[in-house]
Design a protein around this nucleic acid. Structure first.
Lengths: 346, 346
DNA sequence: CTGAAAGCGCTTACAG
DNA sequence: CTGAAAGCGCTTACAG
């Protein structure tokens, strides 16, 4: 079943059928359009996207590109999978197809964008230097998430990470904490961490608290539970520290496991604030106080911006910074008058 | 940059270049091959997949099809996203591309498979009746997951759900529980739930315990936390019940929240066993005792089977059932001698 | 080992 | 409103 067959059966030219399919109603009489449509339906004809793509040199494909080492499962992160899930649905609503790529090397990526003449791409979790290399590669609209790159031509959707850091510190200080750990991945890995950290420090400063470099805990890897649980145990031994701000809910949850296994009760003995407001926050005990960002909205916005740029055809860019808010649950309380008076090490 | 340009520059025919690209070394002298390859590299030439796809009528695309209502985010489920993540990586390793589709109607799906001449498809979370409708639609290898459909020509990778149900019951009975709730989505929604349930009941029977229909709790929706938390509260009031088997770790985690908010302590006052062994199990308190399945292996196997069938070209099918095991953590203990003696309802 | 020709199934100007 | 022709960039037999 091809265009030609349909045309023959309808007694029209292939280009008339093509016009009907593509909704160029102005170029076809209603009667013939109806007749052609009916035959298409009967024959269950489906156009060949490759042929169309070849002729038009575009594809109706949007690529979602995730950063990921070969050995880890990037979609394991609920943060990424929530974004990707709603992005795919939004893309489908636009009648586009979604190709998902997990990035190993830059070679691969520009290859898959070009070989399929992908119409646009959304990038998740890329480092800024990679973004700068990337943004020249292909002449298609690209939208990044959580980027702090200062390339002007870049479309990005991010959140107010600085404010997030301030809110977290403010919450903990408000409950009486003065000695607060900051736990996150290396700053150079992601601009978001850096900005959360400076917001955090600035809020401390505003309250006349100096941040002690010994209270900064940098994780080698964000995805190794045991490392983080261990860190929780260490934290439990540091009797001076009464609370922690973790740069993700994931980190917070494992920290809690370590803290608890060291005999601390939460939030009585230790307070903790997370980041993201994943479903996880309501699944763990104590339910996690966190900085919330609207992932669904973020995903929708990224797709919206992409399609706006697809239609605009100009070389403009559009970036948006979304707001964040503190969501108070159960993981923060006043510090013990005397920190951790009687810890039992099991 | 096209094949033609490369051919012109190398002073050979397009078909020689084509042979070089496709690794048909037997048809090209090493010298010309090397020369062509060098020009390709210099010019940074990337073949047009649409043209290739049109000429060969295949695509090097594998489709991953997820079942999902329009209003919910299917990839939100860590179960799905873990599978999809490793599948994508495996597919990439085969030098294929991945299209991800979230299913709304059957129309759409057969459309996207056919329009791109997708080479194969993997399906997640489909109901059996849908699978039966599906499996006729396209003449390409398809692999299903967790299907109990008895179509012979079907390739499937599943787990021993029956055994999982038995193990869960056995664990709880072994700790002294006699009155155990079963919590899961409607049985008709998924064969897996049905088989876990019969395994569960059979194990009770083997221990001379009759399962009381009042101890079966069917969730309308698996994805509405509040409903499950409410159910946890109800369960806390049922003083006769001392433990629960939930058909997923997700459900278990929300159940725990409900139980706790009703003043119960876990596992002292109530024991619970989950299913899947997600990362979540180590993030919640108490860490969840669960029936573990190897999702990464499941995903790899599904992709392996798909590619085996792609090569085989015969119309054979291949199915595999993976084993499950009990993983004991902290969420199960002996029941209180007298169930929930002093509950404080906050 | 190499090539000329036809064809895959669409769309794009261009005419009428 | 409709159509004949050329072309998108590959691959597939078929000859040499």
């Amino acid at each position: 079943m091809t265009l030609k067959d349909i045309a023959a059966e309808a007694g029209v030219s292939t280009m008339t059928v093509s016009n009907v399919i593509n909704g160029n109603t102005s170029k076809v009489s209603p009667q013939t359009a109806a007749r052609v449509l009916e035959i298409i339906r009967q024959r269950n004809y489906i156009p060949n996207s490759s042929a169309r793509s070849l002729a038009r040199s575009n594809s109706n494909i949007i690529a979602i590109i995730l950063r990921g080492e070969t050995d880890e499962n990037t979609l394991q992160s609920p943060y990424n999978s929530a974004l990707v899930g709603t992005m795919i649905q939004k893309i489908q609503q636009h009648n586009y197809y979604t190709m998902v790529n997990i990035l190993k090397s830059f070679q691969d990526i520009s290859q898959s964008l070009r070989t399929w003449k992908v119409d646009g791409a959304i990038f998740l979790g890329m480092f800024d230097n990679e973004i700068e290399m990337m943004s020249g590669t292909a002449q298609i609209p690209m939208v990044f998430t959580d980027s702090y790159s200062n390339i002007r031509s870049l479309s990005n959707v991010g959140i107010d990470d600085y404010k997030g850091g301030r809110l977290a510190a403010k919450c903990l200080i408000g409950h009486g904490h003065r000695k607060i750990a900051f736990v996150g991945p290396p700053v150079q890995h992601a601009g978001v961490v850096q900005h959360r950290f400076s917001g955090f420090c600035d809020e401390l400063k505003a309250n006349n608290i100096a941040f002690d470099a010994n209270d900064l805990f940098v994780l080698e890897s964000e995805v190794k539970p045991d490392t983080i649980i261990d860190l929780g145990c260490q934290l439990a031994k540091r009797r001076d520290i009464t609370a922690a701000f973790a740069t993700s809910d994931q980190i917070a949850s494992y920290l809690i496991q370590g803290l608890r296994s060291s005999g601390l009760r939460l939030p009585e003995d230790f307070s903790i604030v997370g980041f993201d407001d994943l479903m996880l926050c309501r699944q763990i005990t104590p339910q996690l106080t966190t900085i919330s960002q609207n992932l669904e909205y973020k995903a929708r916005l990224a797709v919206d911006i992409l399609f706006r740029r697809l239609q605009a055809s100009g070389d403009s860019s559009e970036s948006q910074i979304l707001d964040v808010a503190l969501v108070e649950r159960e993981s923060v309380s006043r510090p013990r008058p005397q920190a951790h008076p009687d810890i039992k090490h099991p």
